[in-house]
Design a protein around this nucleic acid. Structure first.
Length: 284
DNA sequence: TTTCGTGT
């Protein structure tokens, strides 16, 4: 009898030691992970306004950018990254697209074959490569960073926007925080079966650009799938509030209420000199 | 320099 009691005591102590170990390890991991996330997002990682199946996601960390991955949409709901001016911007050759095993879903590099949709980057190849280097570049080719885009959007209008960001806005402001992602129809069931393989097809895409200064500036775009590609960029400027309404996400959750109201509630294009870049021709 | 598909 005595022996049994001491056996269970020992087990209880072992469980206790294990629990403490797990808590400490989790705490260390969490602190470190939080540090990485803070380095890749200004004023907090995007989160959901309300906990709904379509807005819930988990964060995948890459070199140079974060991905908010939705297992229901089988899409990145957002990507977040900084860009800063570099001496001699250039990118190496485009690597191959890669499967990302963290998504669990089997999204392979030829899942898009014959679909009529491009494999569109959210965190862009060129800008990430130029600013964050070769490894980060390869991570932008993970299928977790890819979403179905119509060719005229991906290769023309969206590409022009990406080019303006890295070639004009980054040199002007020095450092930018960019968040980009897809927009889906309001009712999930209306679009639930509209998929490329397992990947739900968005109806539009947003890109939020912030100058993270004492007095921050923000500019946000919302572009639909069906464009010709030569439209002026400033036609698609919207407020961050509008993107939050359309996506169910909360951007920059650590912003003070006061600052959030000023930055997110209205469209302010002063300071961006949009008129100079809105009509630059397509490269492709 | 910056987007991709192509078909196996």
């Amino acid at each position: 009898m005595r022996k049994r009691i001491s056996f269970w005591r020992r087990q209880a102590r072992n469980v206790g030691v294990s629990l403490v170990f797990v808590m400490v390890a989790t705490g260390l991991w969490y602190t470190q992970e939080q540090g990485y996330r803070d380095q890749l997002s200004w004023m907090g990682v995007p989160t959901w306004e309300t906990l709904t199946p379509t807005s819930v996601h988990r964060v995948l960390r890459n070199d140079g950018f974060l991905v908010g991955w939705s297992d229901l949409r089988v899409n990145p709901l957002w990507v977040s990254y900084y860009l800063h001016a570099v001496e001699d911007p250039h990118a190496g050759a485009r690597p191959d697209f890669q499967r990302d095993w963290r998504t669990l879903w089997p999204i392979t590099t030829d899942s898009y074959f014959g679909s009529g949709y491009d494999r569109g980057h959210l965190a862009p190849n060129y800008a990430i490569a130029a600013v964050h280097g070769r490894v980060a570049q390869s991570h932008t080719f993970r299928m977790s960073n890819i979403t179905p885009q119509r060719p005229d959007l991906n290769r023309r209008l969206w590409q022009r926007l990406e080019e303006v960001v890295i070639d004009h806005f980054v040199p002007r402001f020095g450092t930018l925080q960019v968040i980009a992602g897809p927009v889906f129809p309001e009712r999930y069931l209306d679009n639930a079966l509209n998929r490329v393989g397992l990947v739900e097809v968005p109806e539009a895409f947003y890109k939020i650009i912030v100058v993270p200064a004492e007095q921050p500036l923000a500019l946000a775009f919302l572009m639909p799938q069906n464009v010709r590609g030569n439209e002026p960029l400033d036609r698609y400027v919207v407020s961050i509030d509008e993107i939050e309404m359309r996506t169910g996400l909360d951007f920059f959750p650590n912003l003070s209420e006061d600052m959030a109201g000023r930055l997110e509630g209205q469209v302010r294009t002063q300071g961006w000199e949009l008129e100079k870049v809105a009509r630059l021709p397509s490269r492709f």
